[in-house]
Simulated scan of single mutants.
Amino acid sequence: MNFKNITVAGSGVLGYQIAFQTAFHGFNVTVYDISDEILEQAKGKFNVLGEAFKKDLNATQKQLNATLKNLNYTSDLTTAVKNADLIIEAVPENLKIKLGFYQKLSKAAPEKTIFATNSSSLLPSTLAKKTGRPEKFIALHFANEIWKHNIAEVMKHAGTSPQVFDDVIDFAKAIGMVALPIHKEQPGYIVNSLLMPLLSSALELWANKISDIKTIDKTWMVATGAPMGPFGILDVVGITTVYNINKIAADSSKSPIKIKVSKKLKKEYIDKGKLGTTTGKGFYTYPDPAFEKKNFLK
């Protein structure tokens, strides 16, 4: 692995975290997004993220200053990718948007550049043809709050070069991740294959009015010793992402319960701007959510 220049495409919930984490570990990072206005918002988020790195990782101000120097910004795709060894795509979780992005990216990027998608629900083989370089295309998936939940799921598709697979695993380790190699395509990778049944069941219990949010979370926390329940996890994942995944499932399966969950999420949370930890309000209110209070489990 000889990566030096990394481009992160998309500065949303995970994109800006990936960019900052990578820059923190000494790589030259270019942050690309569709407008300068969005990039300005990302710069503000980096300052907040720096405080989290101080608190959770004991990062020094010197390290954070160096991190910010490693970050560059552009809304011009050709400029963003001209020297890239690796591009990590973190654009919205929408097949049409991603396919359109890769069509443009394949023409703009140098031949050497490896492409990695951070998609949480789309298999790399779904996108591989549009990349124009399927042998240099792979999935590299991070969990939210990546500086704390530092896993990187590295999943190849049937056409991925073994060398690319090994290089991206090495890169993940180089930015402080615990690399999790996945040798065959699997919807949901490892983490979501384990986690999604839990979160889906919690949402269905809530949508069907079987029980309330706090009781469902309390049940899981007391029964397993987990530090948070499924709705606390959903706030961290981000309710927009949760809604998008449920909406895709509802549209494809026509499942009555998936439709009910999607409608309830949109009406009670998305439309009200309650999107989880990033907005300070979701199923809980932050920074002091009820599930962290002393008497929650009683």
Rank of each mutant, 00 (worst) to 15 (best):
I259L: 11
Y269Q: 02
I270R: 01
D271V: 14
K274H: 11
H183P: 00
N192I: 15
Q186M: 12
G238H: 00
E185L: 15
T215C: 01
G232S: 05
V261S: 07
I248H: 02
A207V: 15
T240Y: 08
S262D: 15
Y189D: 02
I182D: 12
P256W: 09
T277Y: 01
N244S: 10
K274P: 04
L234A: 14
N246M: 13
S193N: 10
T278M: 15
K184S: 11
S211L: 03
K254E: 12
T241L: 04
S252V: 00
I190T: 11
M228Q: 02
S211D: 12
I233S: 02
T241G: 09
D271H: 09
S255F: 08
D271W: 13
V242E: 06
P197F: 03
I239N: 10
S255N: 14
P197S: 01
A249F: 06
T215V: 04
Y243S: 08
N208V: 14
S252E: 12
D251M: 00
H183D: 00
V261G: 08
L194C: 11
L265G: 10
G232H: 03
T224H: 06
K258P: 02
S193A: 14
K209P: 01
K272W: 03
T224Y: 11
L234W: 09
M228N: 01
I213P: 10
V191R: 04
K214S: 08
P230N: 08
L234R: 05
I233A: 09
S201Q: 12
K274W: 13
K264P: 03
A226V: 01
G232W: 05
Y189M: 08
K267A: 13
K209N: 14
G232F: 05
E185M: 10
I270S: 07
L205A: 15
M196Q: 07
K260C: 15
G188N: 06
A223Y: 08
E268W: 07
N208H: 10
L265E: 11
G225V: 00
V222C: 11
W220H: 00
I259Y: 05
T219E: 04
G229F: 02
K267F: 09
Y243I: 05
Y243M: 04
Y189P: 02
G280T: 08
W206I: 08
I210V: 15
E268T: 06
P187N: 12
I216T: 11
I259H: 04
L234C: 12
W206H: 11
P256E: 12
I259A: 09
M228K: 07
I239S: 07
I259C: 00
G238S: 01
T224E: 06
T215A: 02
N244C: 06
K266R: 14
T219G: 01
L275N: 07
Q186T: 10
L205Q: 15
I213N: 05
S193R: 15
K247H: 03
L275R: 04
T215W: 03
N244Q: 06
G232C: 06
A249D: 09
A226N: 00
G225T: 06
S201T: 13
L199E: 07
L194Y: 13
I213D: 04
K260N: 15
S262G: 07
G232V: 11
F231L: 03
K264I: 08
S193Y: 13
A226E: 02
S201D: 11
S211I: 02
V261F: 06
K184Y: 10
I216R: 01
G229T: 03
Y189V: 01
G225C: 00
I248A: 05
F231A: 01
V242F: 05
S193F: 07
H183W: 01
T277E: 07
S252C: 01
T279W: 05
I216Q: 04
